[in-house]
């Protein structure tokens, strides 16, 4: 098998991401998919650091640093300004972490999605406020250690896909850098759709997940294979499509090897692990029900 990703490179090395950063790779692949005619809107997140200190930048496209809660509204504004200038061929890409999406930026994102403003919103989700010191966010999974949940987080992860799908936006998808072909296909597909497009990408943070850097890609692949982070697309809030179905099954062994490789899950007891496995299996069934719901829509 050989990947057929675009050769064009729209990012520079020398950026400040930690070794093995999944978020850095996500940006690299996204810019490969979207090309030079892209403007990035960046609220506070890891990428504010990764992009380098003033006056340096790691990307070859315009990138606008903005306040934590404003990715949605600034993207709406930039797109409106581009429309006024008649620059119709420029893609606006809001690039936010899980904190800026699940927590702080949710209102602005929801409002923009409700207006169906024309931009792509990518949430690269590393499941905590990593660059400020690994504080928990509402994307941190149940049972995970963080510096603000020193034993374990007691609340489940917020389901951001359900929230965005409920806005009936034209396109929402989950994506993973462990599947570069699928990741790039989804961004290219999003590029060709008008309206608010949302992509939720789980990326590994070796620093915050407390794992060795070389397993970064392997872990997010395991997340997909084990059913923890299934890859799927939702069109117009209704039509669900499961990607890579042959690769996915909520598998006890795979889930355990995913959890076992990460220091942030080191505190889990056997009972906790069983609960996580059961939760993943029921979430998986819920997703399958939604996919089967497609049949009812067709009738």
């Amino acid at each position: 098998m050989k990947f057929t990703i675009p050769q064009e490179e729209n990012m520079h090395p020398g950026h400040l991401a930690c070794p093995g950063c999944g978020g850095a790779l996500a940006m690299r692949l996204a810019l490969k998919a979207l090309g030079k005619k892209t403007m990035v809107v960046l609220p506070a997140c890891c990428w504010s650091i990764i992009n380098g200190p003033f006056p340096y930048s790691a990307v070859k496209v315009p990138l606008f640093h903005t306040a934590f809660e404003t990715a949605g509204s600034v993207s709406s504004g930039i797109k409106a300004a581009l429309d006024i200038l008649g620059k119709k061929d420029i893609t606006v890409l809001a690039w936010a972490g899980d904190g800026g999406t699940f927590d702080i930026g949710l209102q602005a994102l929801s409002a923009a999605a409700e207006r169906n403003d024309d931009f792509i919103y990518v949430c690269y989700d590393n499941e905590a406020y990593m660059n400020t010191g690994i504080q928990r966010s509402s994307a941190t999974p149940w049972g995970a250690w963080s510096s603000t949940t020193p034993a374990a987080k007691e609340e489940p992860k917020k389901n951001i896909m359900d929230i965005m799908v409920a806005h009936r936006i034209p396109y929402a998808a989950t994506a993973s850098v462990s599947y570069p072909d699928d990741f790039i296909r989804k961004l290219k597909r999003a590029k060709d759709i008008k309206g608010t497009r949302f992509i939720h990408a789980l990326v590994c943070c070796p620093t915050g997940w407390k794992c060795s850097s070389e397993i970064s890609i392997k872990l997010t692949r395991l997340a997909v294979q084990s059913g923890i982070f299934p890859l799927y697309e939702v069109e117009n809030g209704l039509k669900y499509t499961l990607n890579k179905p042959q690769q996915i099954s909520p598998d006890n062994k795979l889930i355990r090897s995913y959890l076992g490789a990460q220091g942030r899950f080191a505190n889990l007891s056997e009972k906790d692990t069983k609960k996580i496995v059961a939760d993943i299996k029921s979430e998986w069934l819920r997703l399958l029900n939604k996919i089967e719901g497609n049949i009812c829509i067709k009738q």
Binding site: G14, H15, L16, P19, P55, Y56, S57, A58
Partner: peptide, 17 residues
Amino acid sequence: WAISTESTLYNKTGSWR
């Protein structure tokens, strides 16, 4: 507002290795 004019190529991150 402040505009970056250079790339991160100045930063030889190989030294982290």
